[in-house]
Write a protein that binds this DNA or RNA. Sequence first.
DNA 1: TAGTGGTCTAGACCACCTG
DNA 2: AGGTGGTCTAGACCACTAC
Lengths: 254, 254
Amino acid sequence: MTPSPETALPTDLFADLDRNGPIPLYFQISSRLEEAITRGALPAGARLQNEIDMAAQLGLSRPTMRRAIQELVDKGLLVRQRGIGTQVVHGPNPSKVGLSSLYEDLANTHRNPGTIVLERHVVPAPEFVAAALGVGEGTEVLFLRRKRSADGVPVAIMANHLPISFADVTAEQLERNGLYQTLRARGTNIRVAKQRISARIATEEESAILDIESPAAVLTLERVSFDNAGRAIELGTHCYRPDQYSFDSTVVAR
Amino acid sequence: MTPSPETALPTDLFADLDRNGPIPLYFQISSRLEEAITRGALPAGARLQNEIDMAAQLGLSRPTMRRAIQELVDKGLLVRQRGIGTQVVHGPNPSKVGLSSLYEDLANTHRNPGTIVLERHVVPAPEFVAAALGVGEGTEVLFLRRKRSADGVPVAIMANHLPISFADVTAEQLERNGLYQTLRARGTNIRVAKQRISARIATEEESAILDIESPAAVLTLERVSFDNAGRAIELGTHCYRPDQYSFDSTVVAR
DNA sequence: TAGTGGTCTAGACCACCTG
DNA sequence: AGGTGGTCTAGACCACTAC
């Protein structure tokens, strides 16, 4: 296979780099590169200049340029081969990935999210909740159950258990901003989550809430989220209407 | 919240570093650290020494030490906070993640994988296959359909379309080694994949093959895989028995 | 042989958090 | 004020690929 011809980068792509501002240089570079790829200015299969020349042209050190490129390799937009170069991955849909909330997912795809809080109780933690949150069994925790919709169509039923320190979270906050944004406003940032995606037949009650005909399949997600300090913050047990929601991701071999 | 006391690393944890061999230093370090965490030698919540001291103790430069730690941050095993330090994430199950084949997943969990090739044809590419593989509609492609099982229990029905250049892949190779390993043996390494996970009700035929009672839910995966050079190599359309398989992952906020 | 990315070093300055 | 991680520089040598 003949390597693709080298694609010179548009000279103005990296104009206006802010060398003193708070935004890291590598991030400014990778953002502009990503935008050029998704815009199509760098088509699938295009080969980039080598990183040393690019660094020199931009007046950067090589490690900084490498880091910018590596960001996009990790996102699955670029592939690199020693001795060959760096190329844009084929394929039409650069899909989103990672740790986002349903609320943000829907907003990003321009669907108008809606929330109804179905239940909100302080309950003693069942065994599986206690294990996930790292508290003693029977410890009081906050239980939430919400119905989520997009443009008026039911999308998901989401159940959450949180440590009792979040017991002052109100239904109004949840319906207005979503759970993750509410947590952020309280200074709690989710950093890591461990999750399991599976499927099952919806119960009669779920079918009614989601407005689907039994028997129906639902997509399920169990997720334990951790904050900056590595503490368990939230256990989520959700089910989604598969015709309204799916999990898209780009995975990269390590 | 008081920061956890600093945990001194076992002095022998990093003995026998090979400074001249082919294995990168950062990888040797991160592997040993990961092993110490999963083994429990570094318990959940433990705070590591600062990276500068660790680098000095091991006779490494700080960037190399940083890279080793960053590997584990990206895997979701560690969290870092400026001004605070590096801590081990809570939670019991450091789960696997990323781009693996079903065959490897099953082998890793000590379940004996089995494969039966149900279909193997060269067919003209339907529109959705042509779009995914970046070939013209109607171009000949290889179509495979396999039944996968673990310890004799049906787990999945996997359908794949590949470019015609892989038409010499035999049923025997697939049943013996799985698709990805067969591709690797031919010098094709999957580097990136874009995938979508959803769910639906199984068809009667699928229920029969998977040995489940209708109506049943199946977990579905659509995946387009790309090689080192960014070329589309494979389109997979799979369905899984949710009681036998689920998608576990650890996600990290960017 | 020439060109590419992969690794590693030895520093520097800065931003953020805690006391 | 002191300690932490976050960023950046300016080099060096090596491994792999192509011709």
